[in-house]
């Protein structure tokens, strides 16, 4: 590949853009490594002794040793981290299995009501969590008895993500050559075998994109998590907001909490940015 020559001005522009987009994140990392006394002091210096104390405070019940600086261990966050992981992983797995079956049916079979189904998927995509807040709270509490449970949260997240996942996977399944499936069918494979053994392996990039998007939404969601959980089942975003309303904010600890919440999405982005971008562009360009 031939590369264009870059002028110094262009180079400066690129460096500035990178600084602007990653600056706030770096600032969060730095803040999470300082003590609150240090943060609130008048002298702002970039030179300071980094410390992991804030992380120890946050994760105290998950550590194998007891941090010396802590009088009492606040277990809230450790528990919330476990809840968040469990909810997001389960929701992602379920959404993928259910979603790709539906997407496959919509692409490969002609059947009654197909257009209605794909149109309503599109419409359902835009329902915001704020709109679901009232009805989901009412139904989960009074009819399903799912309030305060993690499975209630998983159910909402699966439903919220399904339309998007179906939509994204459709565009990937469309690219699978139908001849492959026909060949498998002639060799005697049933519809389920064709789906699981031929189609699924071929759309792995699409599955990766869909998985990342679903995980991200379930992992980051606050509003419904706040309405549907109780003390024992709170997720990380809910604990962060709860701590923010306290009068005296300990910035070091809260930034450490924020970092722990931000790390999984950041890792996914660094590992699979190509899939994410494909998913994003497929979403807009093939509207």
């Amino acid at each position: 590949m031939k590369h264009d020559k870059t002028s110094p001005a262009f180079f400066v522009l690129v460096v500035m853009l990178v600084l602007m987009s990653t600056g706030p994140i770096l600032m969060m990392v730095l803040t999470s490594l300082r003590l609150n006394v240090d943060i609130m002091s008048d002298t702002s210096s970039l030179i300071f002794m980094p410390t992991l104390r804030n992380y120890e405070t946050v994760l105290c019940n998950a550590l194998w040793y007891t941090p010396e600086h802590l009088g009492r261990c606040d277990k809230t966050f450790g528990r919330a981290l476990g809840n968040s992981l469990l909810v997001s992983v389960t929701a992602t797995a379920l959404t993928l299995v259910i979603g790709c079956m539906a997407a496959y049916a919509l692409v490969r079979f002609r059947f009654l009501g197909r257009d209605v189904v794909s149109f309503s998927t599109l419409i359902l995509r835009m329902i915001p969590p704020a709109v679901l807040l009232v009805p989901v709270f009412g139904i989960w509490t009074y009819q399903f008895g799912l309030d305060g449970t993690l499975s209630g949260l998983v159910l909402v997240y699966v439903a919220m993500n399904l339309p998007f996942v179906i939509w994204i996977l459709q565009s990937f399944i469309r690219q699978v050559p139908i001849q492959l499936e026909e060949a498998a069918r002639i060799d005697g494979a049933g519809p389920f075998a064709v789906f699981f053994l031929v189609v699924l392996p071929l759309i792995r990039p699409g599955l990766a994109a869909a998985a990342i998007f679903t995980f991200r939404i379930a992992w980051n969601e606050f509003l419904l998590g706040n309405a549907l959980t109780d003390r024992g089942t709170r997720t990380v975003p809910v604990t962060i907001v709860n701590r923010l309303t306290e009068y005296d904010i300990d910035w070091g600890v809260i930034m450490a909490t924020g970092m722990l919440l931000a790390v999984p999405p950041i890792i996914f982005t660094l590992v699979a940015s190509r899939q994410i971008i494909t998913g994003m562009t497929a979403g807009a360009v093939k509207g």
């Binding site: 706030p24 994140i25 600032m27 980051n220 962060i240 809260i254 919440l261």
Partner: peptide, 19 residues
Amino acid sequence: LRTLFILPMMIAPIVVGLM
């Protein structure tokens, strides 16, 4: 470059607010 640019979108809105 593109990878660095999509980082802000992937991070939790709660955390963006925090920063």
